[in-house]
Design a protein around this nucleic acid. Structure first.
Lengths: 337, 337
DNA sequence: TATAGTTACTAAAACGTTTAAGTAAAGTAG
DNA sequence: CTACTTTACTTAAACGTTTTAGTAACTATA
C-alpha cells in the first residue's frame, strides 16, 4: 500500500493541512520544529505526493503534450529533444505523440491529451491541413504550433523559421555556382513552410533574371523515397541542373539515385537540401543544406508555451527564427562566373 | 468551465452513477432508453471524462513511462516509435524521457514517473550502471528493461537481443573476407550487450584459430566522435584490418576518418557496424551491419509491459530477439580464400 | 395472494490532495 | 488587566470520477 499524506500526518501527530504546507514549502505558517519533525518522517517513509490528487484540486498537471509528425525524421527528433530539455528544466513532463503526418491521428491525439488533462500542447502539425475540420475541434487548452501553421482555435503562439529567406539564399547559392536550370523539389504545398520556400525560390529566380517554369517545380512528399524517384520522371538532360530540395531526406534520396545513374555531383548536378539533419554531413558527397535551428525550435516552443500558461494574457505570441546555409560538397563545384 | 459528469447527470435527470456506467459501457444494468438519452446529451455537450479523477479511484492511469538514453540515436528512436505504436494500439499514453545516458538523470526520471502515477515503465538504461545505487531506489511499479540490463528491483521483464551470436557472425564475416587483424571497437563494457558482443568476438576468433590480443579491443563510448578518433591511437599499419564496431555511429565516424586518411574501404580495411540504423545504407561506402529489430524491440517491450500489468503473476518474463547481418559495401572485397 | 426474483435505478463513500476559513493559545499595547 | 494581534495550527469542503450496497417497482412463480 502506498503511503499517503494521511499516514504522514498521523505519524507526526499533525493535520494533513500542515503536512501539505510543508511538502509545498509554504511554511510561513508552520513552526520550525514541526517542519523538521515532519520532514524527517517524510524522508523516513519515503513519501512522495500523488500528483493526480494534487492536480485534481490545483487544476494544473504540470504535464504537456507534444505532437510531431514523424519521430524518425531527425529534424523532428531534434525538436523533441529541445522540447524535452526545456520541459524538464521547468519541471514539466511530456506526453509524446507521433501523428504519422496524418491529420485524423493528430486530432485523435489532441483529444486524448485533453482527456489526460495536459496543461498545454506543443504541435508540429501534419502536412496536409483541413481548415474546416480543424475549426470544429473543441480545444480548451493553449497550443503552441511549431514549424507548420495550423487552424485550430486556441493557437496561442507559434515558433517558425524564415523559410522565405532560407529558400532565397539556397537558390541564389545554386545560381551563383552556375547551375542553369534550377529545380525546386518539394513536399505538399499545403503547408506554409512549403509555400514560403516556393516564394523564396521564385523571388531568387526573378532577381537574377531567370524565368519561372512550372515544370521545374516538382511536388511530392517529404520522404526519401520520393527523392529517389524524381529523376525517373524528368525528360530533360540533367547536365547543369541545380536541385533545391524541400528537405534533406528528399535530397539524400535524390543524390543516391543520381549516383546510381552515374551523374556527377556536384560537377554536373548540384543539390541543396533543407533542415541540415545529422546525416547530411555523413553522406557522400556531403549535402549543402539550409540549417534550421531545430533543437532551439523545440526548446523555445516549450518555453513559450509555459510562459503562456503563466500569464493568462491572451495576446498571440509569435517568434521567427533564422536559418543559415551550410555549404558542403554537393554544390561545391568550381565557380563558373 | 469544463463540463463534468454531474452536469450530464443533472441534464439527463439521472444519477452520476448511471452516467458513469454508460460512459464505461457497463450497461447491463441500464435501460436502453436511458442509455440513448444520456449518450445524446454527452455528445451534445461534448463531454469527456476527466482521466485524473477516474485514475484516482481506479488506481490505473493508462499511462506508461519510457526512458531511453538518447533520442538522437536512431536505434532508440526506432525503439521509441515501436513503443508508441503499441501503446497507442492498447489505449495507453507515454511519458517520454531522455536520460542522456546518465544514471542519475535516469533515476530522477523514474522517481518523477512514479510520482505521476504511471502504471509501468519501459527502460533502456544508461550504459554505466551502479548496482548498489540502483538497488536502493524504491520502485513500486513494474519495469520492463529493453536492450540493456539493469539492477533495479521490480524488473518484471526484459527484451534483449542475442548479442553474442550477432557479434560472432559479424566477426566471422570479417574473417571470411580475409581481413587479418580483427579489431573490436566498443562502448563501455559495463553493459551486458557490450560484454556479450565481446564474448562473441572472442569465440569467433578462437573458432577460426586466431589469437586474442588485448590491444585489439578498444573501449570508448558509443558515439561518432569516438569512432573518428580511433585510428589516431593505433600504432600499426591498417592494411588488412577488419573493424568490428559496437554500433553504427562508431563505424560511421571510423569510416569518415579512414576516408580522410585515404585508406580504401573495403579493399584495405573492412568495417562492420552494429544496429543497422537508417544512415548506414546512405553513407559511402554503405555499411555492413548487424541489424537489430529495434522497432520490434520497442513494440514487444510495451506489449510485455502491459501484459504484466494485466496478470499480476510475478514470474519474470524474458524475450530474446534475433539479429541478422546486413551485407553491404564496407566489407565487400573480393574474397581472398 | 404472498413470495421470490429481476430490472433499473440511486446514495454515498472513497481515491489523495489543497486551501479557505476558523480557532485556541500566546504575545503585545495601552 | 483588557483588547487586539500574531502564531501555529485544524477542520472540512472540494476536485470528478467509480463502485458497493441498497431500494423501489415490477414480474414471475406456486
Amino acid at each position: 500500500m502506498k503511503i499517503t499524506i494521511k499516514d504522514i500526518a498521523k505519524l507526526a501527530g499533525v493535520s494533513t493541512a500542515t503536512v501539505s504546507k510543508i511538502v509545498n514549502n509554504k511554511i510561513d505558517d508552520v513552526s520550525d520544529t514541526t517542519v523538521e519533525k515532519v520532514r524527517k518522517i517524510i524522508k523516513e517513509k519515503n513519501y512522495t505526493p500523488n500528483y493526480l490528487a494534487r492536480s485534481m484540486v490545483t487544476k494544473k498537471t504540470k504535464t504537456l503534450g507534444l505532437i510531431i509528425p514523424d519521430i524518425r525524421n531527425p529534424f523532428f527528433t531534434d525538436i523533441a529533444k529541445g522540447a524535452e530539455d526545456r520541459a524538464n528544466e521547468l519541471g514539466y513532463s511530456i506526453f509524446f505523440c507521433n501523428s504519422d503526418d496524418d491529420l485524423e491521428k493528430e486530432i485523435k491525439y489532441i483529444n486524448s491529451l485533453i482527456e489526460k488533462q495536459v496543461d498545454g500542447i506543443m504541435l508540429a502539425g501534419a502536412a496536409k491541413r483541413n481548415e474546416d475540420r480543424e475549426r470544429k475541434i473543441n480545444i480548451n487548452i493553449p497550443i503552441v504550433s511549431v514549424d507548420r501553421n495550423v487552424y485550430y482555435e486556441r493557437i496561442m503562439g507559434s515558433i517558425e523559421i524564415d523559410n522565405y529567406t532560407g529558400a532565397y539564399i539556397a537558390v541564389n547559392h545554386l545560381i551563383s555556382k552556375g547551375y542553369e536550370r534550377i529545380v525546386f523539389v518539394t513536399g505538399p504545398l499545403e503547408t506554409k513552410p512549403s509555400m514560403e520556400r516556393l516564394r523564396g525560390y521564385k523571388k531568387a529566380l526573378e532577381d537574377s533574371g531567370k524565368k519561372i517554369y512550372n515544370e521545374n517545380i516538382i511536388v511530392g512528399t517529404y520522404e526519401r523515397n520520393f527523392g529517389e524517384k524524381i529523376i525517373e520522371t524528368l525528360d530533360y538532360p540533367l547536365s547543369n541542373v541545380g536541385f533545391f530540395c524541400g528537405n534533406d531526406l528528399i535530397a539524400i534520396g535524390l543524390i543516391k539515385s543520381l549516383k546510381e545513374k552515374k551523374y556527377k555531383v556536384p560537377e554536373e548536378v548540384g543539390v541543396v537540401g533543407f533542415d541540415d539533419i545529422y546525416i547530411s554531413l555523413l553522406i557522400s558527397p556531403s549535402l549543402t543544406s539550409v540549417s534550421q535551428p531545430s533543437y532551439k525550435m523545440g526548446y523555445e516552443s516549450i518555453d513559450l508555451l509555459i510562459k503562456i500558461l503563466g500569464n493568462n494574457n491572451e495576446k498571440k505570441n509569435k517568434k521567427i527564427l533564422k536559418t543559415r546555409l551550410i555549404n558542403r560538397e554537393s554544390t561545391n563545384r568550381i565557380n563558373l562566373d
